[in-house]
């Protein structure tokens, strides 16, 4: 028996409504094991996909009745499915934000253009972090001006004196 087929079958089984899965899941897996030996894998997958559709529609049409009374017990067990979904969504959100911030951030590289002088390239390498503050023009302008002045005065002290 192909173990990957069993994993796939179990995954599809996991998409069934919990009440159905808890009641019949193990038996379905057992019958799957028995019938795959007869070479009926493809039919079994059609069968379980059809069953998945039927059960999902049935759950939507006939939801489980809630117990009525003065009070009802609330399950305190952590909903594992929701936790897994939340974890996956969090990871995706972090990856997306990282990707977006990485693509919008500075990407210092040597330019082939003859118009770009070597000192400007060096400036973009050294003060790349200042290019990130383009959302606040006034602040960015002040910081870049002061930084540029400092760097220029550090390189060429005479230019600073002339002011």
């Amino acid at each position: 028996m192909n173990p990957s087929l069993r994993v796939l079958y179990r995954s599809i089984l996991h998409l069934h409504p919990p009440a159905f899965r808890n009641r019949f899941g193990e038996e379905m897996l057992w019958i799957f094991d028995e019938q795959t030996r007869e070479g009926r894998s493809l039919q079994l997958f059609f069968d379980i996909l059809r069953s998945l559709l039927v059960q999902q529609i049935d759950t939507q049409l006939h939801p489980q009745p809630q117990p009525s009374g003065f009070y009802s017990e609330i399950s305190s067990t952590p909903p594992l499915r929701r936790i897994v979904h939340a974890a996956i969504l969090s990871i995706l959100a972090v990856l997306t934000l990282t990707h977006l911030s990485g693509s919008q951030g500075p990407q210092p590289r040597l330019s082939d253009s003859p118009l770009v002088s070597s000192s400007r390239v060096h400036h973009s390498f050294t003060y790349w972090h200042l290019y990130r503050i383009e959302g606040y023009p006034a602040l960015a302008l002040n910081i870049t001006n002061s930084s540029s002045e400092r760097s220029l005065s550090a390189r060429n002290p005479q230019s600073g004196d002339s002011r």
């Binding site: 159905f20 038996e27 379905m28 019958i31 998945l52």
Partner: peptide, 13 residues
Amino acid sequence: YKLGPGTLYDNLK
């Protein structure tokens, strides 16, 4: 007539 487990347990339920 060969029943698959999905069809069996849908109807059994």
